[in-house]
Amino acid sequence: MRPFTFTKVRNSAVAVKEISEKEEAKFIAGGTNLLDLMKFDVMIPKNIIDITGIALNYIKNLEDGGLRLGALVTNSDTAYHKEVENRYPLLSHAILAGASPQLRNKATDAGNLLQRTRCYYFYDPATPCNKREPGSGCSAIHGYNRWHAIFGASEKCIATHPSDMCVALAALEAKVNVTGPNGERNIPFEDFHRLPGDHPEKDTNLSKDEIITSIDLPANGFAENFSYIKNRDRASYSFALVSIAVGLEMKGNKIKEARIVLGGVAHKPWRNKEAEAFLNNKEANRENFEAVADVIVREAKGYEYNKFKIELARRSVVRALMQAAKIEE
């Protein structure tokens, strides 16, 4: 690890001030990804601002029936929180599908949103990577890309966002509350993460001098009809090859509203609203689910080692929808 200055702050305003004033500064809370990357010499912040002293470790009900997750609540505390378990089981399941208990006990909700890709090349400073070092090239496009994106990639980067939690948050249409020098704003979840485009070094639309203070979950948690499926290389403690979060609003056997978000397949949680709309007012059955899965994978593009993800994604979407609709075969 390279040297850095260390400052501890007690409130968000000071945190914003510190990060605005300091060069190459980073917030630290759980630290589970930042320190990992600092030790690999991938991230080299000169200033570290410890935000764990800010009072953002809470979960509370919102007036609109939603739930607010403080930025500093750990992934474990979120997943096992009674309100989350009961009203947002999709979120709980997704969180518990990620990482390990030890990591979830330390990693925070805001930190989960900000974790970096697990692309082999991003992690290895001996190889070119546009995300780590803009302009150096992408080693994955013609390299070992089994873990990489099939949606929304660019010629500059085919990395994926590794989070499970974010896949569920995207499906739930969460909002990310942030504070910056110009005050507070909230970012709809689908706008929070970016596609790589020409600037893969930017993972999110959060400004450098902003801090995430909380995440709001809307009232509808799709607690009745949901599914989270995670395909991965071992049964636990590994990142998704393809994951699927599904939430359905059903009336009888009819679908009123569908949310389908894929993880491990793009630079951000991958949602296809056109496909979701296709299911509106349709019967919940395999035929319709197959059809919607076809729509979702239509625009997928595979590379040498990850082509299988396209068919795996298609089948997983069908399976997740069947599970969410509680259709036994």
Partner: peptide
């Protein structure tokens, strides 16, 4: 599970850590 993948462009085992080189865990 196990597979040390050599990237032949670099002649380098590219999944060189325990999150990328998978060893069976208890759940397996």
């Amino acid at each position: 599970h196990e597979d040390s993948f050599m990237d032949h462009t670099f002649g380098r085992f590219i999944n060189h850590d325990l999150s990328k080189y998978h060893i069976s865990v208890n759940a397996d």
